[in-house]
């Protein structure tokens, strides 16, 4: 099987996964005993106003008809209008997603850098101080709630030391760069707007570290154990016996072979960071998709919840698709 038929097969699987997610999201939203209309109108509204609104929104139609509508729209990216913002959900996603994506990518970069370095160092120096340090650092990362880490970081770097700004994506009086991708770092680079770039970078450091720290642990621990595994293999012994330097053995022989599980973890982590960004977005006042979905959830705004969730599921499966393709490149056996 060549790489293309592999990709097509994976794409087909992705469609099935997305269909499953759409079904689950739709039916959970409609089965929970809560009424979006009264949530929208509040406790004071008279009954006839409520009936009028139900009629207008189509919530009095049979569930299966509503499901058909939702699915046929979702296929072309039309998730209907949000009850809360009165905008088409897909437009809202375009507004809010870039901030989340930027945060997640930056957090991933931090997590991968820290995770790989710590993982490799602790495998090479097994049971030395660096290994212990890495273990403790990782455990703290997974066990501290993002919320808490975020507030502590703010307290230290913003409030006490005054090194970094406190909230938002840019300084309050900085004009955002011209919108191209919606990711401020990228847009300001493209337009050569250095002051906005610097602002955006400084504003991104704390939230990205806070979110990335969470993922560092799993990457570091996976890299470590898989490195240790590989280091025990005979080809490493051979390489060492050939008289290759330690650096070459580690970088050229051991690392590439131990990366496969790490790449899987990175793909999975990307998804969990995307959906887990909501707390970070809240603490650092970043207008991202996570907060959009949560606010929609609290207002029982089904369209935005279903649309947003499905969109994240789509991006997540896309990331996993990329990971699987990378996998095939890293390990030729996967292609057969």
């Amino acid at each position: 099987m060549n790489i293309w038929s592999y990709i097509i097969k994976r794409l087909f699987l992705m469609v099935i996964v997305l269909f499953g997610v759409a079904c689950i999201v739709f039916f959970i939203a409609h089965v929970i005993p809560a009424d979006p209309v009264t949530a929208l109108l509040g406790g004071n509204a008279p009954d006839e106003v409520i009936e009028r609104m139900e009629e207008k929104l189509g919530y009095n139609r049979p569930l299966i008809v509503q499901f058909g509508d939702f699915m046929s729209g979702a296929v072309v990216g039309d998730f209907g209008e949000s009850l809360r913002t009165n905008n088409p959900v897909i437009e809202d996603i375009n507004t809010y997603f870039p901030a989340t994506l930027e945060l997640t990518i930056f957090a991933m970069l931090i997590a991968i850098t820290l995770g790989l370095i710590l993982g490799i160092l602790s495998a090479v120096h097994r049971n030395k101080w660096i290994d212990h340090f890495s273990r403790i650092f990782s455990i703290i990362g997974v066990s501290m709630p993002v919320f808490w880490t975020g507030l502590l970081l703010l307290l230290l770097f913003y409030y006490k030391l005054d090194w970094l700004p406190g909230a938002g994506r840019l300084g309050f009086f900085t004009t955002p760069p011209e919108q191209i991708t919606g990711m401020y770092l990228v847009d300001s680079l493209i337009t050569g707007n250095w002051s906005a770039f610097k602002e955006a970078l400084l504003h991104l450091l704390l939230p990205a570290f806070c979110l990335g720290y969470l993922a560092t642990a799993s990457i570091a621990r996976t890299t470590r154990s898989s490195m240790l595994d590989v280091m025990k293999q005979e080809f490493i012994t051979t390489a060492k016996a050939k008289g290759l330097s330690k650096r070459v053995v580690i970088n050229r022989h051991a690392l590439k072979n131990s990366l496969i599980p790490t790449v899987t973890i990175i793909g999975l982590t990307f998804g969990s960071l995307l959906e887990g960004a909501v707390l970070t977005e809240t603490v650092f006042s970043i207008p991202g998709l996570g907060r959009y979905i949560t606010a929609g959830l609290l207002a029982l705004d089904y369209n935005s919840v279903m649309g947003g969730t499905l969109y994240i599921a789509f991006v997540y499966s896309l990331a996993n698709l990329i990971v699987d393709i990378l996998y095939a490149f890293l390990d030729p056996r996967m292609r057969t």
């Binding site: 507030l151 703010l154 307290l155 409030y159 406190g166 909230a167 938002g168 309050f172 809240t282 006042s285």
Partner: peptide, 20 residues
């Protein structure tokens, strides 16, 4: 008059105490 979106009340408190 400017409303700056700060969803988390603890962050609001830090910004207020800092004078932002």
């Amino acid at each position: 008059i400017m409303f700056r979106d700060v969803p988390e009340s603890s962050t609001q408190r830090l910004l207020l105490e800092k004078g932002d």
